[in-house]
Simulated scan of single mutants.
Amino acid sequence: MKCALVTGGSRGIGKAICKKLAEDSDYHILINYNSNKEAALDTLKQVEELGNTGEIIQFDVANADAVKNALDTWIDANEGSIIEVLVNNAGITKDGLFMWMPAEDWHSVINTSLNGFYNVTNHLIQKMLSNRYGRIINMVSVSGVKGTPGQTNYSAAKGAIVAATKALAQEVAKRKITVNAVAPGFINSDMTAELDEKELKRMIPVNRFGEAEEVADLVSFLASKKSSYITGEVININGGIYS
């Protein structure tokens, strides 16, 4: 069984990615969630309604032991199965001006986005290397490419993953593993629900927020065999706000 794992797959962009991979591929979809089991089960239901198979898998990407235990348990229970596609989507924001930023807000954002990338990817990459095939797609952000005031912690975490993407891509390319990053701008989701869309869309050349499905289309392409000559790239999807 060939599988695609999407971290933070229960809601928002992660959910849209799970559904799009279910629609476009034959991959068994592993929907990772941290706390919202109900949302993960709803995503699974929608994956199955699209005629594909999937399951939910619970772990906090920031907790190295939890990641190891959950993935080892799954691998032991699914002998012969291989995770060919990994979408590192889990992330959190704790916005605020840097001068007033508590250490907790810095560390929790770095731990989830950056250490989460390490914990999951490092655990799965050996299998991809021995299998001589893989697709790693890291969800970053316009914040990680251009920097966003009030998001120094988030920009730092996502910017680090941009650099990691470029380095790792060069290490594993000979084994037919591609590593790319997708950098969304303002996308309609839980994460942007509090923002003033009317005010912000004036800054966006296409004059609107993006949809999670538009991001998912790009991720689905990068997860496919069609993208085999694209690696080490950061692809911006932001309506022209920054490129």
Rank of each mutant, 00 (worst) to 15 (best):
T165G: 06
W74F: 01
Y133K: 15
A157T: 09
G185T: 08
A223S: 15
L200G: 12
V47K: 03
K15H: 06
S220V: 07
M101V: 05
I29W: 00
A4N: 05
A4Q: 03
E197D: 03
Q170V: 12
S113V: 07
W106Q: 09
D196F: 08
E38P: 05
S155E: 02
W74L: 03
E104P: 02
A39Y: 00
A39H: 04
L129G: 08
I29V: 11
K15R: 15
K68S: 15
A70E: 09
Q126K: 11
V142Y: 00
S113Q: 02
S130Y: 13
Y229T: 11
E199Q: 13
Y33T: 03
N188L: 10
I187Y: 04
K19M: 15
Q46F: 07
L86A: 15
K146L: 06
L218C: 13
T165K: 00
V47M: 06
Y27H: 12
A66Q: 02
L30A: 07
E171D: 15
K20C: 11
A216V: 13
G150W: 04
I13Q: 01
I17K: 00
N238R: 02
S141V: 09
S243R: 08
A70K: 06
K146W: 04
M191L: 15
D105G: 08
Y242D: 12
K20P: 04
L222G: 13
V140W: 00
K15W: 00
L124S: 13
N34L: 05
E233H: 08
E171Y: 08
A64L: 07
L44P: 05
L200V: 05
F186I: 06
S189R: 03
M203H: 13
N122F: 02
M203E: 14
K37I: 07
I75M: 13
R11T: 10
E23V: 14
L71N: 10
A70W: 02
L21Y: 00
I31D: 00
L168N: 09
Y118G: 06
A181Q: 04
G144M: 09
E48S: 09
A193L: 08
S220L: 10
Y133E: 11
D42T: 08
N78M: 14
A164K: 02
N188E: 15
E49G: 12
P149K: 09
N188V: 12
V142N: 02
Y33D: 04
L124H: 09
A163C: 13
K94T: 03
N153F: 00
A183Y: 03
D190L: 12
E197N: 01
S220D: 02
Y242A: 14
F221P: 04
E79P: 06
I13Y: 00
D95K: 05
N236L: 14
V61Q: 08
L218S: 12
A183T: 11
E194M: 14
M101L: 14
P184H: 02
D26K: 14
S143F: 04
A181C: 14
D72G: 07
R11A: 07
L30F: 02
I161Q: 10
I31Y: 00
F186D: 09
P184R: 06
L168Q: 08
N207M: 04
N111Q: 10
V120N: 11
S189W: 06
Q58W: 01
I161A: 13
G134T: 06
E194H: 14
H123I: 02
I110Q: 11
G14I: 09
H123L: 05
K201F: 10
